[in-house]
Design a binder for these strands. Structure first.
Lengths: 239, 239
DNA sequence: TAGATTGTTAATCGATTAACAATC
DNA sequence: TAGATTGTTAATCGATTAACAATC
């Protein structure tokens, strides 16, 4: 078995060179936003909408909305707009809600508990079916209606269920969590712990670092200061 | 005052057309990874390293490491590599650790508590100085050594302190939190709540959705199935 | 000098955007 | 038909990558 630290991306990594189907990740990331807005419109009895309205509600440009939706096929009507109900169904289908995806969370600290209780999952066809922690002392505690289970139970829950695994442990425990998930046959893993993990090539591993965006904000803030101070100092000096 | 839902990006939005200084966001996002590896090397007494070694440790290609580091200036030595201590300092400086950035968190549910306790912040020059929740009943509780304060205290803590604001509330409370932050003069906000927020143009608002990457994993999983089933069905049929 | 490794170039790729022809 | 809005095109931008000249 060949192992690497690289993330499985797109359709590369599979045997045959495939015809590059698949919606861009950037579009996939926005689809839930559109769906949320459409659902709200539907609840208010609004039958149809336009790319301009969707764009305004989500906070992007209308051209991006049209480009995004065009990846789902052509469901709009020129001069008219999009049917709210129809478009909602199309997005929901694309987001995998045709099939509900089971999720297990490893690591039941604050972050794991936050994820288990996160409302945004169910609306995206993601169902949390198992919570695990290597501290057997907290096994049995209930979080969001599910019991925390010992790691020993992971294999029986994940095996054959084709789950997505989420690592929400502190950094040092992440490797243990990843190994346990891989050993249980999990092939899709999302890692919230800092640091990089090695998984077999056939496992898709993605990583979210809660501090990254905060970091970027801090650097931009610093740059704003640097820019202002570079603008000012020569004032008064000969041009 | 002009309001919009758009995010402040890069140096656009400021008065003058600036000479496009600033390290790419994608690079900024990776700098903490390099720093973490360098710190570990330093602790083990390793004096110098190479782009290949850093790349292997972080899980990227060496060309990317060299490109990233070149944005910091030329601190490597051809034929030799990078000095661990020197490079660590350069990265730390760039990450804003010359100045420590104060952070306030609004919303002290599980996610807010997870962020308050998140070890990755301090190592990046981010210091949590205030925790807030609109439920006054939990005011006074201590999380990670800090007391939870009522929203009424936000202005006195944030005003003039030039803080970065983090919204960790449930979706419906996010607007209230954003308005309070803006009213207190905060100009950098990270939103973990679902939905979009409107802020004045001079405020940089970034958003993290915990479910987005999970969503992408689910869609990729679905695509893998679709690909496999498209590969199989014609087997046995004339070529 | 010979070997090693950087810093940079140029090709490529994916995402964004404005503009507009197509078409209801 | 006139007006509205989509779907697509082409330009642009930022990020990735391989390759290699520069240089220790």
């Amino acid at each position: 078995m060949h192992w690497g630290v690289h993330t499985w991306k797109g359709s590369s990594g599979l045997s045959t060179a495939l015809p590059r189907r698949g919606i861009p990740d950037a579009t996939v990331a926005r689809l839930p936003d559109y769906l949320r807005v459409l659902t709200a419109m539907s609840a208010r009895g609004i039958p149809s909408t336009s790319s301009e309205q969707l764009a305004a509600a989500v906070g992007v440009r209308s051209a991006k909305v049209r480009k995004d939706l065009s990846h789902l096929g052509n469901h709009g009507v020129r001069g008219v707009g999009y049917d709210v109900a129809n478009l909602s169904m199309k997005i929901a289908a694309e987001l995998g809600q045709a099939r509900e995806w089971p999720v297990v969370i490893v690591g039941m600290g604050n972050l794991g508990r936050a994820l288990a209780a996160y409302g945004g999952l169910a609306s995206r066809g993601l169902r949390v079916i198992g919570l695990f922690d290597h501290d057997d002392a907290i096994a049995g505690q209930r979080v969001a209606g599910l019991p925390i289970r010992p790691m020993a139970d992971l294999d029986s829950v994940a095996r054959d269920a084709d789950v997505i695994g989420v690592i929400a442990t502190p950094g040092p425990s992440a490797k243990e969590a990843a190994d346990a998930l891989v050993a249980a046959g999990v092939t899709s893993i999302l890692n919230f712990a800092p640091g990089s993990l090695a998984v077999p090539d056939e496992v898709e591993l993605r990583k979210v670092d809660l501090a990254t965006e905060l970091q970027i904000l801090a650097v931009h803030k610093q740059q704003r200061y640097a820019e202002v101070s570079r603008d000012v100092p020569l004032a008064g000096v000969a041009p």
